[in-house]
Amino acid sequence: MPKSPDSEGRARLMTVTEIAQEHGVSRQTVHTHRRRGDFPKPVEGEGSTRPRFRAEEVAAWFAANPKQPGKRTDLAPEPDRGEPEMSAPASRGLTDTSHEDSEALLGASDVIERRWPGEHPTLVRDLRDLVDTISEEAGAEDG
Rank of each mutant, 00 (worst) to 15 (best):
A60Y: 06
G143W: 10
P121T: 08
F62G: 06
P69L: 02
R10H: 14
R81N: 05
N65C: 05
D129Q: 15
R34T: 07
T49W: 07
G107I: 03
R35E: 12
M86G: 00
E85H: 03
I19A: 03
N65S: 07
R115Q: 12
D126I: 09
E103R: 00
P5V: 04
M1A: 13
H31I: 07
A20R: 00
P121G: 08
V58W: 04
P84Q: 05
P121L: 14
L123D: 08
L105Y: 00
R128D: 03
D80N: 15
V30N: 02
E137D: 03
V25T: 02
D132E: 11
A20C: 06
D142V: 12
E57Y: 07
T32G: 09
H31E: 07
D129M: 09
D101M: 04
E137G: 04
K67P: 10
S87C: 08
W116M: 01
A11H: 06
D132H: 04
R115M: 11
D74R: 07
R34W: 12
S135P: 02
M14Y: 10
E56K: 12
V131F: 01
G118N: 08
S102F: 02
E119W: 07
E44H: 14
V131P: 00
K67D: 00
A140F: 04
T15Q: 09
A104Q: 14
A64Y: 05
R114Y: 04
D129W: 08
S98H: 01
G47T: 11
R125C: 09
D132P: 00
S4C: 08
S87L: 15
K67L: 09
G70R: 06
H23F: 13
T97S: 01
P69T: 03
